[in-house]
Design a protein around this nucleic acid. Sequence first.
DNA 1: TTTTTCATGTCACTTTTATCATTTTATAGT
DNA 2: ACTATAAAATGATAAAAGTGACATGAAAAA
Lengths: 223, 223
Amino acid sequence: MTHIDFLRNVSLFESLNQEELEALSDVTFTRIFSKDNVIILAEEEGDTLFILKRGQVKVSIVSEEGREVILSLLGSGSVFGELSLLDGKPRSANVVAIEETELLMLRRADFVQLIYKTPQIATALLAELATRLRKTDRQIEGLALLDVTSRISDTLLQLATEQGTETTDGVTIENRPTHQELANMSGTTRETVSRVLKRLEGQGYINCSGRKITILREDTWKT
Amino acid sequence: MTHIDFLRNVSLFESLNQEELEALSDVTFTRIFSKDNVIILAEEEGDTLFILKRGQVKVSIVSEEGREVILSLLGSGSVFGELSLLDGKPRSANVVAIEETELLMLRRADFVQLIYKTPQIATALLAELATRLRKTDRQIEGLALLDVTSRISDTLLQLATEQGTETTDGVTIENRPTHQELANMSGTTRETVSRVLKRLEGQGYINCSGRKITILREDTWKT
DNA sequence: TTTTTCATGTCACTTTTATCATTTTATAGT
DNA sequence: ACTATAAAATGATAAAAGTGACATGAAAAA
């Protein structure tokens, strides 16, 4: 797939016409990050916007004691790194490739140009940030109100909607994150994830085998 | 203070010239909400933007079981209610006046006009949302990693920076939220807030009296 | 294959925090 | 000032989740 065809399908750029897409494609450059490579390091200055073409990355914050909170996992079509572009502050989180990932990168100056020439982009970006803000608000709600079991369940459901595939039994998450990663996404510990998954499986809510988790359809629950 | 003078000092509108400010002021209307009145109700459709001129509001989510999470407290100059304007989705949180509050309101159509005529507003709004996103990310980090004491302390420090006044002893928060509200801001319970504040006072970190909390200067800590 | 590293399961134990119950103190309304 | 109402303090428990330790298992590297 050419870059242009790809860019056309990125929601941020859907308002651009062929000519504008070509112009955008011209100022964009590609880079491939292999698994575990750091793409963005928190605290550093940043003047690049990233568009994820292929692969998957995790956005996370690491505390001084080394504990990690995963804010989100992003897949193809996602845009990230724009906050520093918008407010000029240093990067607020780390972004690491969790599999081989191909990124299109756009420098601030070109991005500013782009917004100047096609203001619809600003509108699209505003909508994008609005969506994200709603999502983080829900995360805060979950962390503040729910117990671990519910938080882990929510994390699974979110994974399922974002990257699950429908099967006869329910929705399957192929290549699930490790327990440690699930823990960092749910604000808990590895052991607890282990225990909770075990219990959920015992109760017939989910089915684990290898890197695969299936969230069973409601009508198969033991209740 | 006239509306125009007030609007000039709202960061969102700082790029507007006198003429534009007047035009904005013309399409804006005022409403006063007394204490405990609901300004925005979650789930409802919304096509109004609010600019807080005088008073204070709380933005919160209430769970089905009735437990509340306070996402933020906003004071004069704050803008809220814009998410629904940007992505067309229903309101995601409640907003309630916690004291008598004067609001300027702006309808979607006028807001869209405004952005169309003065695109710098879009940029300012992007920066505003970026700031907010960073803030919510930090909240998530805190909820996921910190124990109750640290979360409550953080909440106090945030209140102090946002609405505290410097005194010889440290920073004073006049008219502090109730323990219940502090609990809802920190993701914990009333009782725990009570106990933690007590301990913090015993250890000489803070000083409570009536509706007032003083966060003592570092050099007076007992350690 | 063999080795080594990383991921997972699972124990016993501790800590933290929520919950419940009750009393005391503040605050606001008449 | 008096009373009604809401807020805060506080003790006793219980539940939830974290910790540390170690065994097992699975996948990647040599």
